[in-house]
Amino acid sequence: MGSAISGQNAKIAVLDGNIKELNYANCIGSLGHRRGEVFARDKGFVRWGLEHRPPVTHPIRREMKLKQLESLLGTLQQFSHPKVELEQYPTGPHIASRLLYTAENTFGDINGKVVADFGCGCGTLGLASALLGAEQVIGIDIDPQSLEIASINAADMELDIDFIWCDINKLRWRDDVVDTVVMNPPFGTRKKGSDMEFLAKALKVASQAVYSLHKTTTRDYIKRTAIRDCNARSADILCELRFDVPQIYKFHKKKEVNIVVDLWRFVPYPTEGSADS
């Protein structure tokens, strides 16, 4: 039971082995990265109290290569005792790096923005956002053990991100302060509808965009519900990915299960009286 997991064995392979442009009418381009650019991790000191560290500057974070982002995320600690009722599956570095890389390089939704990571777990998506230059990142999770691991991961990477211990469903925020929500929500297989609860809340809170992963089998339902019930102005699939869920729970019969998931980008309708575009 409880076989140990790490970021590595939770790898997500893309269909056909490579990220490629799909032929959907609403597919948004490829995920190629720019070559020849160097990323240097900042050397800020994490010291507390009266001493302070030099200002953290990230002049070339935006230019980070996809592979560099992926390998940095591969060093993160993952769930030590995943909780099945919360559908805690680690967001692997492969899928996380692609989600954030596209959000930043294709849409400019991360750098200099306020980003919230809903159901942050061990913080992979939030930390990736911080690495790509988000001005403020807030990770929210209901599970204190996850938040503890996420805090350690943030400290290890010398990134400052905020955490809130809260049930996404019960979260009450002033709308539109957050620009972008990134999330790998529960797929709703254990608790029906939990994926849509996350999505509805994310679209309420975000002013710019919501990035999320949902099972491909629910594609039509997601699109319809997002637009009809969840305040989405648009709902586009950016690519289809294979989420290799390792055998981490007792009830898993097979050694590894592949779930095909869609990477979505939702754009919310602006709320009335919102001050910013």
């Binding site: 403020q136 807030i138 809130i164 009450r172 925020w173 002033r174 957050v178």
Partner: peptide, 11 residues
Amino acid sequence: RLLTHNMLSCN
């Protein structure tokens, strides 16, 4: 941070 405080409401 105080930015986070500025969003949070009693729930």
